[in-house]
Design a protein around this nucleic acid. Structure first.
Lengths: 208, 208, 208, 208
DNA sequence: CCCTAAGCGAGACGGTACGTCAGGTCTTCGG
DNA sequence: CCGAAGACCTGACGTACCGTCTCGCTTAGGG
């Protein structure tokens, strides 16, 4: 979570473990109340009952703190087995949409991505803490579909990886765009239409 | 562009028309040099050779100014007729990716979308100034494909509109996610793979 | 009053004579409501129903405008013949104190004097518009006292002038200091004590 | 000096003691260079090598800051024993006049008094920091004159206090008026004439 | 059992940008 | 040419956060 290197903590008073949790919780609360742009380090510190110094000792700045604070939200996404690839995809689309309804996720996600366009270390942090972790959903969904016989097993490992990346970008991108840019509801109807389009595309690709 | 109501400007010194252009140009330059989060109204004013008050007289704040400044960039997108739907889609994907390579577009787009999650009037401004204007590309592409016989004409107008929205969200979302979140290149290979997936999906939908 | 040279008003639309009075009246009203430091040219213009340009065409700035606006108040001071020098002095002291109770005079007088410490032309304007005009009261009082036989006629004209200046500084200075610096009431009791001190001093000087 | 309550400063980083002195010195320098009306908090902060926030943390505004900055100048006034009441008065008059020659005192004194006409807390601050402190000169002068036998001891304590106040207003008022309003020199000749008038008045009062 | 080193809350510090306001000028239109 | 309206540039305002610092105090582990 925080920037601590556990090896270095040899002597002196150890960092409060409670503080870390309190700070991240306070960060999410502040995101809900104030949004990204109005969130301040001072406010987070006050909410967490902690001094500003304590924040800066653990995180380099607002960006890093917020990434860590919202990353955990994305780990709640799961892929419960609903019996078919279509149902699985539709399920994860709706789960993701529900997550994007939460104000702390909504405001934070785009903001840190925007910041990351000029800050490579932040971009890497986002990828490792949020983005790449969710690719597991794509991989798991494919495995299940292959086990069910809905999809063929792919021979070329690198092509398979490229394909997973593409599917991930399409799903995540479409849902985010619908929810945050178009600002239209990601409801069952839309999820159904989107899932159809995607799966027909995949089926066509495997056929042709 | 700016917030002026032309009817109200009856008496007094008229607003400088040159200032509007200079300010928007300065805003783009500042975005390139400093990025969204470091861009300041003072800096834009200085670059434009204009007083800060002149900015605030015309735009409510940084968000609104930046939306107007980058909106024009998106109007450069075109859909040159390349003879097939696949080529057309691939072309616009690459054009859009090229636009997202420009630092002023990169940094501004996500940032204003992030801000818009807490500001409805900003969201509406983004939609009217940027998003909705580009749906013309989807509509034009479909018309051409229908004229070529690549796609059927749709009977249900509202279903057709929903379909266009979906395609728009999928294309724009996937490209943005690939370019800014995954931070991987949107090259001809990726564009080709994505286009195939999309068109096979559309074909399957029209078939079934 | 205003800075106009009447000879120059030869051609074109003549300046509104009503505007001058309205502006000075508005200036006094603004002094009452806002005080010197909060008074603005824009506010005066608005109150007078006049454009800022009109103000600046007639007065160089806030200082000059205020001097003219309050100068007329000081011309209200009179020296009614009360039968004795003591009564005359006491009367003018109380009149002056009453004037200094008026907020527009209170706030303006000290402020323009403060400004004049760095602006010679302003200092001259204050002297000619306000200060020197009131020396008439000292001269008139002395004449009357001499006519009554309360004071001797002086032979040395320049010594007489110096003496009048001194008396003027003592009276005006003491009253202003009591009213504005010490911020204690200038009532009949104080006026009586002060008058005694002054006249005993004058008597002693003429005796010795 | 500054608005600090020393008891409250229990925790946190203590205020820089050097900053207080630097700020007051910078304020006086700025008064000399720019005068009251052109003096700005920013300029003072820059001269003092201090952030604007540090100024506002200690003083409510320009008025309060300037009062404190010039108050110390008035404490330089002394009443050296010159052997007679006349010589003592003349000496303090010339000292006071010399102080009013200093541009920082000149410009600041009248300005803060002007402001104080609309601000009671400022008026109280001026009185406690400047005015009342100098009454000691009157009291000391009277004591010495009484010890020398030049003045009688007074029985009525409250009358004595009123008398001291009157003398203070007369001396301070006359000198200020001569120096700043009439803008004539307070030289030995004038001081001599004024002292004669005052002491003859006092003598007459004690006689009759 | 103290010593040493780091963590801690508090809050002042030098900065920078904010968005507003006033000053004084200029530019239009209409009288 | 005057006057109103109002846009213009300039520069100060007082506030808010930034990230750093300096305190005095706490909390460990190691000698």
């Amino acid at each position: 979570m925080s920037d601590t290197d556990p090896k270095a903590t040899r002597t002196g008073r150890p960092r409060s473990v409670a503080a870390d949790a309190a700070i991240l919780e306070a960060t999410r609360a502040s995101l809900v109340d104030l949004g990204w742009s109005k969130l301040t380090m001072s406010d987070v510190a006050t909410r967490a009952g902690v001094a500003k110094t304590t924040l800066y000792r653990r995180w380099a700045g607002k960006n890093e703190l917020v990434v860590d604070a919202v990353a955990v939200l994305f780990d709640e996404l799961e892929l419960p087995d609903r019996g078919s690839l279509a149902a699985d995809v539709q399920g994860v689309v709706l789960q993701f949409a529900a997550l994007l309804e939460r104000p702390e996720a909504r405001t934070a996600l785009m903001a840190v991505v925007a910041e990351s366009t000029r800050d490579d270390s932040l971009r890497r942090r986002i990828r490792s803490a949020i983005v790449d972790r969710q690719k597991r959903l794509v991989l798991l969904g494919r495995e299940r579909a292959q086990a069910r016989g809905e999809l063929r097993y792919e021979d070329d490992a690198s092509a398979a990886a490229r394909n997973a990346d593409l599917i991930f970008d399409v799903i995540a991108g479409a849902v985010v765009h619908r929810a945050l840019v178009s600002a239209e509801p990601v409801d069952a109807e839309w999820a159904n239409g989107f899932t159809s389009l995607l799966l027909l595309g995949l089926a066509g690709a495997q056929a042709g």
